[in-house]
Design a binder for these strands. Structure first.
Length: 478
RNA sequence: GGCGGCUUGGCCAAGUGGUAAGGCGACGGCCUGCAAAGCCGUUAAUCUCCGGUUCGAGUCCGGAAGCCGCCUCCA
């Protein structure tokens, strides 16, 4: 079964046929680097990382471009507020973004271009638009794109320019021929970052960088363009307009847009003060929990970030690791399996249906259940056939995990990391805990259960939970 | 005002026209000195409502209600 993708342009699922056989060009809008990234950025990045991983799994040679917008009014404003240079600010947040995305097990794109490294290309793009009569320079002011020169303006967002004027939420600007004309080049005020151009010193508008950079790396036409739903209008609409106006060719074949992350059923907004930053979430939860959460719902739907949903992600991830651990104890190994059994087939079907990760995750749980059943039936000591089946299940889980970017740790390492994290955040005295556990073990040996239970209660007050395994007692932090 | 989306068991969440995946929870069991953890099993859905098309609709069409998003920077 072949891959089908929901295309925002047209509003339905379509079979994926790349422009060039075996190769995929994909461009995703990256962050404007003026502030710390929030969980919504993480969703977009993780979703398209998963798309990237799946396309590669299907055997495509993928050129994945994700930009950094490093010239922008918000950056300039931040520079004025902090007294720091814009370049310092952008470097700082690019660095932070990389650290957080690496932590989330996100693969680096093939190319990560920055707008400021492509000013020459942007200027030449604008010059050609002016030459073609698609853009105009207002003396002493901006260069605007003339949307009336482009017949299909509104094709992506389904908007009619006339209706929008009636809506009157568009800024009035006498210099514009049409209120919806958008800025390609903006003159710099003294002290602002500026580059020389035919229209005087200035900087590019927001939309043009993506048209110019995608053209530089992916050509006149490419396969997939992605971003958050909010970018459909005006950003992506304007990108299409500029690029198609210049090249007279279809700009992008498949447009993909991810839904938003809500916080406790409310939109993230400055006024509500509920911006949830990736670094804060990473302090609270392991990276794989965050990924599993972000992929637990279809990428186009809104997803709600809340304690209960995160708790479920924790429980789910640990269920998988607990099984992998149990299977390994019994002698199974994912290296002995092909990873391509029946369940993998179901997973493929799910992923091929517009990257249905929610369904894909359900397949993982099916594999876990099947494996646990074998272990139970065979008393934890499976036969040769049993081990073979278990190894095959583990290999398939591993395979699915490689696509989702989860279950890639050694189970022991996962649980050890969890304990470390808790010990650090609660500043526990591990020596004291170990001493009490040892004392309790002695008491149990002597059948002094009253004493043993007293110690357990004492530890419970410190949020330490004991688990008596056949080969000794382990403690965990609640 | 314009455009778009959503409404599936207590909760979260898949669902290609043929009579509803998965997870959480709850309950029961295995294990345990008792627990915890883990595992297994059981559980539960007039698929928001009203019409229509169809042999057959959660799935298609029309309408209603509620919720949400975009149209201004925004993943």
């Amino acid at each position: 079964m072949s891959l089908r993708i929901y295309n925002t342009l047209g509003g339905r699922k379509e079979e994926f046929v790349p422009l060039q056989e075996g190769r995929v060009g994909m461009y995703v809008c990256g962050p404007t680097v003026y502030d710390t990234s929030h969980i919504g950025h993480a969703r977009s990045v993780v979703v398209f990382d998963t798309v990237f991983r799946w396309l590669r799994k299907l055997g495509y040679d993928v050129c994945y471009v994700r930009n950094f917008t490093d010239v922008d009014d918000k950056i300039i404003k931040k520079a004025e507020e902090t007294g720091e240079k814009p370049e310092y600010i952008t470097e700082k947040y690019i660095d932070e973004f990389h650290k957080e995305m690496d932590a989330l097990n996100v693969l680096r794109p093939t190319i990560e271009p920055r707008a400021t490294d492509h000013i020459r290309h942007i200027i030449s793009f604008i010059e050609k638009l002016v030459e073609k009569g698609r853009a105009y320079h207002v003396p002493g002011g901006d260069v605007y794109f003339a949307i009336d020169s482009f017949e299909n303006y509104g094709m992506l967002s389904g908007r009619n320019p006339d209706d929008m004027k009636a809506g009157s939420r568009v800024a009035v600007d006498d210099k514009k021929r049409n209120p919806l004309d958008f800025t390609l080049w903006k003159p710099a005020k003294p002290g602002e970052p500026a580059w020389e151009s035919p229209w005087g010193p200035g900087r590019p508008g927001w939309h043009i960088e993506c048209s110019a950079m995608s053209h530089e790396y992916l050509g006149d036409s490419f396969d997939i363009h992605g971003g958050g739903k909010d970018l459909i209008f005006p950003h992506h609409e304007n990108e299409i307009t500029q690029s198609e106006a210049l090249f007279d060719k279809r700009f992008v074949k498949y447009w993909m847009h991810n839904g938003f992350v809500d916080i406790n059923n409310e939109k993230m907004s400055k006024s509500l003060g509920n911006f949830t930053m990736i670094k804060d979430v990473l302090d609270l939860y392991p990276a794989e929990v965050i990924r599993l959460f972000l992929l637990s719902k279809h990428y186009r739907s809104p997803i709600d970030f809340n304690d209960e949903a995160m708790r479920e992600a924790v429980v789910g991830l640990e269920r998988v690791y607990a099984f992998l651990d149990r299977a390994a104890e019994a002698g199974a190994s994912f290296e002995k399996g092909s990873g391509e059994g029946e369940l993998w087939g179901e997973f493929e079907t799910a992923m091929n249906d517009d990257f249905n990760t929610a369904k894909g995750i359900a397949v993982v749980f099916d594999a876990v259940k099947q494996g646990n059943r074998i272990l139970d039936e065979q008393g934890g000591k499976p036969s040769g056939d049993g081990i073979e089946t278990l190894s095959e299940l583990c290999a398939q889980i591993r395979n699915m995990g490689e696509v989702l970017g989860v279950f890639v740790l050694e189970p022991g390492a996962y649980f050890a990391d969890k304990t470390d994290r808790a010990v650090r955040s609660k500043q526990l005295d591990t020596e004291e805990i170990d001493r009490l556990v040892k004392e309790r073990t002695e008491a149990r040996k002597n059948k002094d259960f009253a004493r043993a239970d007293a110690i357990r209660d004492q530890l419970a007050e410190m949020n330490i939970v004991l688990e008596d395994a056949p080969d000794g007692t382990v403690w965990k932090v609640e």
